[in-house]
Measured scan of single mutants.
Amino acid sequence: KKIKIKIKVYNPETKEVLELEIEVSEEEAEELAKKLAEELEKKGYKIEEVEI
């Protein structure tokens, strides 16, 4: 079964909002969402919402 992940991120420095969407297997979904959120935060983005 495929799971659709939508991530909306906001960069306070540039006032930019990015929306990302990807489909992955159920097993990958939670781990991938967690890794993406961590990487984006390292780059200065503030995570507003992660929906699985």
Rank of each mutant, 00 (worst) to 15 (best):
Y45I: 02
L20E: 02
I22T: 06
Y10C: 05
V24Y: 04
V24A: 09
E16L: 10
E49I: 14
E26F: 07
A29N: 02
K15C: 11
K8C: 04
K1D: 04
I47R: 01
K46I: 10
L20P: 01
E28A: 08
N11S: 10
E41L: 05
S25P: 12
G44Y: 01
K1E: 06
I47Y: 01
E41A: 09
K15W: 10
V17Y: 11
K15Q: 06
I47D: 01
L40M: 03
L20D: 01
I47A: 01
L40W: 14
T14H: 05
L18D: 02
P12V: 13
E30R: 11
A29G: 05
L32E: 08
K4Y: 15
E16V: 11
I5P: 00
E28I: 12
V24G: 07
A33W: 14
L36V: 06
E31T: 14
I7G: 00
E19G: 09
S25C: 13
E39Y: 11
E48R: 11
V9C: 05
A33M: 12
K6C: 06
K15M: 04
T14S: 10
V9H: 03
E27R: 08
Y10I: 05
E21N: 11
K6H: 08
V50Q: 02
K46D: 09
E28W: 07
K34V: 06
G44R: 01
E27N: 06
E51A: 09
L32F: 10
E30Y: 14
E48W: 13
N11E: 03
E41H: 05
A29Y: 03
K42C: 14
A29W: 06
E48A: 05
A29I: 04
K8M: 04
E41P: 01
K4L: 13
L18A: 05
K42V: 03
E30C: 15
N11C: 15
K35D: 04
L32V: 13
Y45D: 02
L36E: 01
E23H: 13
I3R: 14
L18N: 05
N11T: 06
E41F: 07
K43A: 06
E28P: 06
Y10A: 03
E27T: 09
K46E: 05
I52H: 03
K2G: 06
E51V: 15
K46M: 06
E49G: 12
K34A: 10
I5Q: 00
K1M: 13
L36A: 03
K43V: 03
K4N: 08
L40F: 07
A33S: 07
I22H: 09
I22G: 03
K46W: 08
E31N: 09
E51F: 12
L40G: 00
K1Q: 04
K43S: 04
V24P: 02
I22M: 11
K4T: 11
E28H: 14
P12I: 15
K2H: 06
V50D: 01
P12M: 15
Y45C: 08
E31H: 08
E30P: 11
K42Y: 07
I22R: 11
S25Y: 14
A37L: 11
E19Y: 14
I7P: 00
I7D: 00
K34M: 10
E31R: 08
S25N: 13
A37T: 13
V50G: 01
I22N: 06
V17W: 06
K34F: 14
I52L: 07
K1Y: 15
E30N: 12
Y10S: 05
K43P: 01
K6P: 00
K2M: 15
V17E: 08
I5C: 03
K34S: 04
K4F: 15
K6F: 14
K35Y: 11
A37W: 10
I3L: 15
V50T: 02
E13Y: 15
L36C: 05
V24L: 03
A37G: 03
K42G: 07
T14M: 05
I22A: 12
E19V: 13
I52R: 01
K1F: 15
L40N: 00
V17D: 04
K8S: 04
Y45E: 01
N11W: 06
E27A: 13
E23Y: 13
I5R: 00
K15V: 03
V9F: 13
T14P: 02
E30T: 08
K4I: 09
L36K: 02
E51P: 01
L40D: 00
I5V: 04
I5N: 00
V17K: 12
K46T: 08
E26P: 08
E23G: 08
I22D: 04
E49M: 11
E51I: 14
A29R: 03
K46Y: 04
V17L: 04
E13G: 06
E27M: 13
Y45R: 01
E38W: 15
V24Q: 02
I47C: 04
E49H: 11
E16F: 15
S25W: 10
E27W: 07
K43L: 05
I47G: 00
K35V: 06
V50E: 01
E19K: 15
L20C: 08
E26V: 04
V17G: 10
E30V: 12
A33K: 06
K42T: 03
E23P: 08
E31P: 10
L20I: 14
L20G: 02
E19P: 03
A29P: 08
A37F: 11
L18P: 00
L20K: 02
I7W: 14
I5T: 00
I52M: 09
P12T: 13
V24K: 02
V17P: 04
E39R: 03
L32R: 09
K2I: 10
E13K: 14
V24I: 05
E30M: 08
E27D: 14
I7N: 00
E39P: 00
E21G: 11
Y45A: 02
E27I: 08
A37V: 13
Y45F: 09
K35N: 05
A33C: 11
E26K: 06
E39S: 05
E41Q: 12
V17C: 10
K4M: 04
V9S: 13
I5A: 02
A29L: 03
K6D: 01
Y45N: 03
E28G: 13
I22E: 08
E13T: 11
I3C: 15
I52G: 01
E39G: 03
L32N: 04
I7R: 00
E19W: 11
E31W: 15
E49P: 01
V17S: 08
E26G: 07
K6E: 02
A37S: 11
K42L: 10
A33N: 01
E51M: 13
T14R: 14
L20F: 13
K35F: 10
E31F: 13
E26A: 09
I7H: 00
Y10G: 03
K43F: 07
K2N: 06
V50Y: 05
E26L: 05
E16T: 11
E51W: 13
E41W: 08
K1P: 08
K2Y: 15
K43G: 04
K46G: 05
I7T: 00
K4W: 15
T14A: 05
S25E: 11
K43W: 11
K15H: 08
Y45Q: 01
I52T: 02
I7K: 00
K46A: 06
K4S: 09
P12K: 15
K35G: 05
E23L: 10
G44E: 01
N11I: 08
A37C: 09
N11G: 02
E21H: 12
Y10V: 07
K42H: 04
I47Q: 00
L18R: 05
V17H: 12
G44W: 01
E21I: 12
V50P: 01
E16D: 07
N11Q: 08
E19R: 14
